[in-house]
């Protein structure tokens, strides 16, 4: 049954549409909103997010679980389940063309050749019943109409590129026959197969142990530089982003609360939330002390508190924080933060 469907699916060539970035600008996300309409009410997952991504640039989006970072990624990819998700406002432009208003078929053709994504759990993200080589080759077959055996050869080359040992022998193996790190390499091979301009990595190393994490991050960085991709790295792990990212956007309750160059952000955070995140990293030179943690929980997205969404957890909060929501503003040149007291925080 599967094989007949496999061969009768019409082959398609790469779409006639060509995308050329202007001044290296690949992706513009402008005032994006995403809501989830559930029986219990409307949860606002993304609350007016804007950012740009250029060729060869790495942007890290940092945040706790439920801060909206994965939803942002899925909205860009266009793989949100709609419904329940609704995008009531905003634009996502790829090379100047708005992905949100694009016909679905045209948008589908951008997934893979233009914008591509790696997921957190490679075991569940790969199809358990198809060989890994077949799954990589599917990209060439479906997007470029390459025949089966040629596509498989290209898949082997990609597996070699992402440093899977004995790729030729393992091309017919199934996902469960690989280790976690090797599976994530297969995901990466699949994602970069058609040479996308933008690669989104959604917590690519969360499910892996620390030594493998470093290898995967090194591979991603290497591929990004080799192909001059725009990389969006989504993570909650400050340690992971430090080496790879150029810029960091810190997300809280569906908003960016701070955007900065990675080095500057680490040396002097401009938002109390970012400061709290940095203080919660265990440090080797401070053994035996209680680990600093941010008290409280992220807000319920159906009832985001008025004023600054972080105010119930903020040690610095004053009346103005409970009343007025701080906008993301330039604190010092090149540094954006959404805090009434950003100047004080950055100099603290």
């Amino acid at each position: 049954m599967t094989t007949t469907q496999d061969t009768t699916t019409p082959k398609e060539k790469t779409s006639g549409v060509t995308y050329t970035p202007e001044d290296g600008l690949l992706l513009e996300v402008e005032d994006l909103y995403v809501e989830f309409h559930t029986p219990d009410g409307i949860a606002t997952a993304i609350n007016g997010v804007s950012f740009d991504l250029h060729q060869g640039e790495s942007l890290a989006i940092l945040g706790e679980s439920g801060s909206g970072k994965s939803v942002t990624a899925q909205a860009i990819m266009g793989i949100l389940d709609m419904p329940p998700a609704v995008i009531p406002g905003g634009h996502i432009r790829y090379c100047g063309q708005d992905l949100l208003s694009m016909p679905e078929d045209q948008r589908r053709r951008t997934r893979g050749p233009e914008v591509s994504m790696i997921f957190q759990d490679a075991l569940s993200s790969l199809n358990p019943v198809f060989p890994v080589g077949w799954q990589i080759a599917e990209m060439f077959r479906m997007h470029r109409g390459v025949n089966k055996s040629d596509a498989l050869q290209q898949a082997i080359r990609l597996m070699e590129r992402v440093q899977i040992p004995a790729a030729r022998d393992r091309v017919k193996a199934y996902p469960h026959q690989f280790s976690g790190g090797m599976r994530q390499r297969i995901m990466i091979a699949m994602a970069i197969a058609l040479d996308p301009a933008v690669l989104i990595a959604d917590e690519p190393t969360t499910a892996l142990d620390v030594t493998v994490q470093a290898q995967i991050m090194a591979l991603l960085e290497e591929l990004q530089q080799e192909r001059q991709m725009g990389l969006i790295l989504i993570t909650h792990d400050l340690g992971v982003v430090a080496d790879v990212a150029d810029r960091i956007a810190v997300m809280y309750a569906g908003r960016f609360v701070e955007k900065a160059d990675v080095v500057e952000l680490y040396s002097a955070p401009a938002h109390p939330y970012t400061r709290g995140l940095l203080e919660s990293i265990p440090r080797l030179d401070q053994k035996g002390q209680t680990l600093a943690a941010i008290g409280g929980l992220p807000p319920n997205l159906m009832r985001i508190p008025p004023g600054c969404p972080f105010n119930p957890r903020c040690r610095r909060a004053e009346d103005v924080c409970r009343r007025d929501r701080p906008e993301l503003r330039e604190v010092v040149p090149g540094r954006l933060a959404a805090c009434h007291f950003a100047e004080e925080v950055i100099n603290a």
Binding site: T110, R111, F119, L126
Partner: peptide, 15 residues
């Protein structure tokens, strides 16, 4: 997750 991956690979919904 793997059906989400299939969508992210740009496959047709039918496939």
């Amino acid at each position: 997750d793997y059906v989400r991956t299939a969508t992210a690979k740009g496959l047709r919904r039918r496939r």
